[in-house]
């Protein structure tokens, strides 16, 4: 094969792959703009009414806020637990460090649906903890492994003697952490936050069983809505969510080369 035909074959294969991976998004963007009361593609007439309707559906608004709050506060809580853990696992020769690592990583290995069910049955039902609190804790635990992993990898290159140097220059241990460690792992912490946020926001299986009257995360709400109505608003909402994720990732990539942490 000569060079130019090889190049052509190259791009044909990549074009097909990318069409398969990304094409569907273009389709839902257009399907959400169809001026029909049912899903149609190609769209019959273009309208923005479904995109606007998304914002007026009361349950979408409520579940969007819940998902947002879970993603933000769940991830913050996970960082609050995860950053000190990552720090300690990197710095100290702890007895049972491997066990701690495994326990903290466990939520990645256990399928989410099982976690949701287990929490519902053995936490919410017996202790009367609210579903919202259970959701919050489940999402925190879900994001925790990512927080520990990403922060650990950014702490890995940070030598311990840098903190010792700071202490010898007059820092307390805490000051050495805030003035020397934190500024140097800021990128990792931010990346962990974004990764955690996206993971939590998109999460379905964990939240599946953890829903109650008026308490539903957005993806679950969308699933429920789809069972009743077949209008293009879910397509419109899917498209909007895709844009949101893309925007977050794009900004993160521009700001800190996010992809090297994923």
């Amino acid at each position: 094969m000569n060079t130019s035909s090889r190049l052509l074959a190259n791009w044909v294969i990549l074009g097909l792959t990318l069409t398969f991976l990304i094409g569907p998004f273009l389709i839902i963007i257009l399907a959400g703009a169809s001026d029909t009361s049912y899903l149609a593609f190609p769209p019959e007439g273009l309208t923005l009414k479904w995109y606007l309707k998304v914002f007026t559906v009361e349950s979408f608004r409520a579940s969007f806020l819940l998902s947002m709050a879970l993603a933000v506060f769940g991830t913050l809580a996970a960082l609050l637990l995860g950053v000190p853990a990552a720090y300690a696992l990197n710095r100290y020769a702890l007895p049972g460090a491997e066990t701690i690592r495994t326990i903290v990583a466990a939520p990645i290995i256990v399928p989410g649906i099982i976690v949701g069910l287990a929490l519902l049955r053995y936490l919410v039902v017996p202790t009367g903890v609210t579903v919202t609190l259970a959701l919050f804790m489940a999402h925190t635990a879900l994001v925790l492994p990512y927080a520990v992993r990403v922060v650990s990898s950014s702490m890995h290159n940070l030598r311990a003697d840098m903190e010792e140097a700071a202490v010898l220059l007059g820092c307390s241990r805490l000051q050495a952490f805030t003035k020397v460690v934190l500024p140097n792992i800021r990128g990792g912490v931010l990346a962990a936050f974004i990764l955690g946020f996206v993971t939590s926001f998109n999460q379905v299986p964990v939240s599946l069983f953890l829903s109650g009257p008026g308490v539903r995360t957005l993806p679950i709400d969308m699933l429920a809505y789809m069972e009743i109505t077949f209008d293009p608003s879910v397509a419109a909402l899917s498209a909007l969510l895709a844009f949101m994720s893309l925007a977050i990732v794009f900004v993160a990539e521009r700001l800190l080369g996010f992809s090297r942490y994923v």
Binding site: R159, D161, A165, V180
Partner: peptide
């Protein structure tokens, strides 16, 4: 320090 331990 041997590694200098400068603050990057």
């Amino acid at each position: 320090f041997q590694s200098y331990a400068l603050f990057p």
